[in-house]
Design a protein around this nucleic acid. Structure first.
Length: 273
DNA sequence: ATAGCGCCCTGGTGGC
DNA sequence: TGCCACCAGGGCGCTA
């Protein structure tokens, strides 16, 4: 599932090739991917425009156009955003193709069709979650005090708070489990019950695991590929996610999978308290 | 305000 | 071997 490291990897690659490219055509093969605009209206608005830059906010990709409008894309579970030469083989389940000058194409494929595109012009049109997005965990604004404030007084499981995009942006199921393991904290603990020391440790581990994954091009469990169609490498370094039944690398105890915050949750029952 | 849950969607998997 | 229930889960809308 694309989370912050995966989306940031895609962003960097798109930012290297899209700016300056002019949109020649838009082929929408599944209209409901476009959440706030019809295919014909999208074509009318963006054909002839040039891309000027690519940003990321949480798990959203924000593609800027030269008239100030933005295409805001969320990959959700199985979305893939790639740039390829026109005529090169497509991924299966390609849903949207934006053809560009110079002979390349921006392609969006998505098996499960959870992914979304929003067109945001002068009149708004941002997806609801974007404006309410919480702090970027790799930014300077994310400090141990920030995390303490986010967790304080909450009775929800600490994992639920880490997954809440309005509190912290970009953490999904994989990195929540990995950060909590590395910090030695049981995901089911009420968020407000963490000691100052535990909060500091969790803050450090969140940043460490996101940064480490980013350096490996993200995690590919099944579907994720980067902007050039290449899988990530960080799955080799996962400590708990997807390792239920296998021994903890730290203590040898068999890792278990249970449900926390409605999500499959991977823990070492000995290392995490 | 907060917390929990069901829904969307499809392919892969595991059990019988 | 074949079938089918179940699981994966981000974000959103609904409920208490």
């Amino acid at each position: 599932m694309p989370e912050l490291p995966e989306v940031e990897t895609v962003r960097r690659q798109l930012a290297a090739v899209l700016p300056g490219r002019r949109i020649k055509g838009v082929d929408v093969r599944l209209a409901r991917i476009l959440r706030n605009i019809a295919p014909e209206a999208l074509q009318e608005r963006i054909i002839g425009r040039r891309f000027t830059g690519v940003d990321r906010r949480g798990k959203f990709l924000i593609l800027h156009l030269d008239d100030g409008a933005r295409l805001i894309v969320h990959l959700r579970m199985t979305g893939r955003m790639t740039v390829a030469r026109a005529g090169d083989p497509e991924w299966p389940y390609t849903r949207v193709v934006v053809s560009l000058d110079g002979g390349s194409e921006l392609r969006f494929s998505d098996v499960r069709t959870f992914g979304t595109w929003h067109y945001a012009g002068d009149t708004g049109g941002e997806p609801p979650g974007l404006a309410a997005m919480g702090v970027e965990p790799l930014s300077d604004g994310f400090t141990p005090d920030t995390l303490a404030g986010v967790l304080a007084g909450r009775r929800a499981p600490v994992k639920a708070v880490l997954l809440d995009q309005r509190r912290i942006a970009g953490i999904g199921n994989i990195y929540a489990d990995e950060a909590l393991f590395r910090a030695g904290i049981d995901p089911a603990r009420p968020a407000g019950s963490l000691s100052a020391e535990e909060v500091t440790r969790l803050h450090e581990k969140i940043r460490e695991v996101l940064q480490a994954s980013l350096e490996k091009g993200g995690t590919t469990v099944r579907d994720y590929v980067n902007g050039r169609g290449v899988p990530g490498e960080f799955q080799k370094y996962l400590e708990v996610y997807g390792r239920a039944g296998q021994p903890c690398r730290r203590c040898g105890t068999q890792l278990v999978k249970r449900k926390v915050a409605g999500r499959g949750t991977h823990v070492c029952p000995r290392c995490q308290r």
